[in-house]
């Protein structure tokens, strides 16, 4: 069966705080760039914002049920239909995380692919749906694991081919941040699909993921506040 135990495992409060910080960071990035987009209507900013909106939605689904359990004592929800809630949450988490990664990549490469944008968005949706469906229908973790590794490799190749001048400090920093973001995005998915995979390093994974979102938020606020 699908790994619904991601709703039940681990320390609920740690995971709630973790997802809450990621959601807040993502929404702050989305909100802080609103005026820039309204003034410029620049498509790169639009895709960048949407990527972080998708991250916020993904993390909302990841632990929304835990929030209900922890603060509203809504255990009845899980008792009546645990599989359904687990599957729905997992599906949306996988779908929106994949979409966030695609949109962040597209925010970088859209200038060279604006003629194919409609086709690319169809492909993004289809691939994200496939990843989400594989995540909920495959009994073992191997297939979702392989799909995520493939997604990670594709993201890395796109980043690498888009790298214009690695010697430029600014571009090198962005390349490193996005690479880490994609790696930790994938590790978070694996963390859900393979419950004991990171049992000793889960806290390190959470801290690293939060640090990356914080760095991006800091860079955004620094520019927005100029």
């Amino acid at each position: 069966m699908p790994p619904i135990n991601f709703l039940l495992q681990g320390n609920a409060s740690t995971e709630l705080i973790y997802s809450f910080i990621i959601i807040i960071c993502s929404l702050m990035i989305y909100h802080a760039t609103k005026e820039m987009y309204q003034l410029s209507s620049y498509k790169g900013i639009k895709y960048f914002r949407q990527a972080f909106l998708f991250f916020a939605i993904a993390y909302f689904f990841r632990y929304s049920i835990k929030f209900l359990l922890a603060f509203f004592d809504a255990k009845g929800i899980l008792e009546t239909s645990p599989m359904f809630i687990g599957i729905i949450s997992l599906f949306f988490y996988l779908y929106f995380t994949s979409m966030a990664i695609f949109y962040l990549l597209y925010s970088i490469i859209w200038k060279n692919n604006s003629k194919n944008s409609r086709r690319l968005f169809y492909i993004f949706n289809i691939v994200a749906l496939v990843i989400a469906l594989v995540g909920i229908f495959f009994t073992g973790p191997e297939m979702p694991f392989i799909l995520n590794i493939i997604l990670l490799i594709i993201a890395f190749i796109v980043l690498l081919t888009n790298q214009k001048d690695y010697k430029k400090k600014k571009e090198r920093n962005l390349f490193i941040i996005y690479t880490l973001l994609f790696i930790f995005g994938s590790l978070n998915i694996i963390d859900i699909l393979v419950p004991d995979f990171f049992q000793f390093f889960q806290m390190a994974l959470y801290l690293a993921s939060i640090s990356i979102f914080m760095i991006i938020l800091y860079k955004v606020l620094k520019r927005v506040g100029d």
Binding site: M36, L39, S40, Y42, D226
Partner: peptide, 22 residues
């Protein structure tokens, strides 16, 4: 007013686009 605001924010917008390679 938005036109004036655009001029005020232009440098920040361009720097932001460059910062994130958008």
């Amino acid at each position: 007013d938005m036109g004036f605001r655009f001029l005020e924010r232009y440098r920040s917008i361009v720097d932001f686009i460059e910062e994130f390679d958008l």
